[in-house]
Design a protein around this nucleic acid. Structure first.
Lengths: 217, 217, 217, 217
DNA sequence: AATGAATGAGAATTCATTCAT
DNA sequence: TATGAATGAATTCTCATTCAT
């Protein structure tokens, strides 16, 4: 008569193939909130609506949860990034604008921010995590961006800068924006305003802070 | 007559007024290496050449060590930053260049990098730390920088950008440079090359990536 | 037409009236290998080609498996031993020789060794086991052997020894032989050589180590 | 007025160099009583009058307790056995009598029995234990005994038996005597009577069960 | 001031057992 | 009958903290 067993306490839900993902979701939330070390497996279980033992049914150890989390997040990232950057032709500033705007949009959803935050936080304690992230994401994305910049220089779109170092100038500001907000709660008055940040940054990035023919001229 | 055992390993040291600082030094090293949670008080004691009990003579708890560490690091930072930025007159690009170069120099010494790394890592687990750092450092430094930018705009040195967001564009690249190196071991071939980074970044920051009258014109 | 899956691995078995015995077989192997405490019910199930739950269909608890095992092994032993010793007439040395040779043959099959090994190992933790084994086997066999010896003495076949203590001299060497091999891997060069052991032992047992008219004479 | 702090609860006894031995004593008792797996570290601590944590101050793990126990027992055994057997001259039956009587005396003290019992019981679960015991004790003692027998044969004291197998005939009865008593509670009416056992056994061992010129003649 | 033995709360992990299907 | 997902009590081991000396 009533919805059969929705919300019926813990014991015995069947059809368990979604279970691992639910556990990872719970783990992610708590790792973000309190860090890996300070999160108890029992809390993860509770948040996932399971018992401690059940978590171990799906993950061999607490650390395996962290790995699972990173693995789950890592593959899509690199793929989507590379798909966007892919084989672009023409003015690289167009792609750079697109990518920064895409990142801004992506990070406006706190869920998308969770994994990077977690990785940054725990990576020092789990070197394999850093290695995996580097291998799967950074080592694949960075060379593509460098190539993009280099081509832009060759084709006369960009000033002859160091492509590798320039990546820091392109992405760094976004990262700091996020870090200030997430770590210290410092953000522009009206909220994160990723749009405004990107606009402001793109102006500077492409045309410089200096007034074209101001006092510096 | 007898500086017989000055500077000779942890053991053999009388005259203990420097003891708390030595404990903090040891704690800092270990917190950086393995994180706060994974560092044992006993290890700190050992590295400081003391016994566990003695550590508790100087610090009420493990957490107090973290606080002490941040407190010790925090005051000089803000002061020195403010002293540099202070009441500067004229082209703000000169100060910005100076500050970035100073930061670059400072971060070339790994010891100077330790505290920021530690704070970033542990701050989520200890909100008071974030609060203190924000209060003592960020809330005092950021407004000054904003003022500097604003004045530069008013005086016609700088393009009319958003001062607050522009700080991200100025500092962010340095932060990313450090993060890539520290967390993922990614750095330019010849080493950190802070000088080159800053040069490259200042060019972009002030004059933009775009070729003055290239294809974009 | 189709005895297709008789005797073919654990899976694929219908007709389950032998199920409990299969579970016991699996349990016995594992209890021997790793001991009762270190054997997981799940492993027993796996080795028997069943699921954990099914084991509990046949045995109420892990301990019940141990009991079942001992019960299954205990009855035949005493019966066969008593049948052999039964009501023997004449020179008891003939029976003793026969029994030792039978035991030697029996223990040459490792499967026959499994239960005694298990009982010895776990009996301290499960006193009921010891009690059962004693009641069902030892208390029935020992008196018969004592009677045999006593009769041999009375009838002038054997030296006037203590029948009860003499049982130790008859059986002990076999037990030590097995123990050295099973526990420490110590055995004669060519293998267990139960035959040679029994021959050597019977010579000593009946005629003594001393040279009949050697230096001792 | 009263003995100051004898029997004064747990906290803080100094002069701790006897601690490891006390812990081992407690562990031995409990391992004997309930087996290694069924003994909780906390129980060991309690019996030793310590807290759980303190046990781990002296032993790195529960298994290390077992190792420590065996190590402590193993060295004296081999040494004392070898000292007795050493380089004996003359009739080997004298040494054999001496050794068996010594073993009987030794095993009359239950404390001396504890370690062999423990080793037999747990050795299957900890192969390194078996290896150590074999290496340190058996492999050193057995060859000496074999040599003794061989010399006795060569010198005409003993019948030409297989020295290696004969060891089983010499020692096995004692072992069975102990096993029956310890495992099944079966012993002669008046107590263990090791003396009588050894006397009875030596008679058989040296002169045989057969009546010198009885019906067998 | 300094020590280090001792404590005990707390966390990860295991596994016998239950039960809806 | 049979399954295997789920449970949670139990156990090992760690480590911050205390305190007699």
């Amino acid at each position: 008569m009533d919805t059969p067993d929705r919300e019926r306490g813990p014991k015995f839900r069947r059809r368990a193939e979604a279970r691992p993902d639910e556990v990872l979701d719970a783990a992610l939330e708590l790792f973000i909130e309190k860090g890996f070390a300070a999160t108890r497996v029992e809390d993860i279980a509770k948040r996932a609506g399971l018992s401690k033992g059940t978590v171990y049914l799906y993950f061999a150890s607490k650390e395996a949860l962290l790995e699972g989390l990173v693995r789950r997040a890592v593959l899509p990232i690199a793929d989507s990034a590379l798909a966007t950057l892919g084989n672009f032709e023409g003015d690289p500033r167009v792609v750079i604008s697109m990518v920064l705007k895409m990142l801004a949009a992506r990070f406006s959803d706190p869920r998308m921010l969770a994994m990077p935050k977690l990785i940054f936080r725990e990576v020092l304690g789990f070197p394999e995590l850093a290695a995996m992230y580097r291998r799967e994401v950074l080592d694949r994305v960075i060379p593509v961006v460098e190539g993009l910049i280099r081509k832009g220089i060759d084709e006369g779109y960009l000033r002859p800068v160091d492509p590798s170092l320039t990546i820091r100038s392109i992405i760094g500001p976004l990262m700091l924006h996020v870090a200030l907000a997430e770590v210290f709660g410092i953000m522009p008055e009206g909220g994160m305003s990723f749009d405004k940040l990107v606009d402001n940054h793109l102006t500077i990035l492409f045309d410089g802070l200096s007034v074209p023919s101001g006092p510096s001229a």
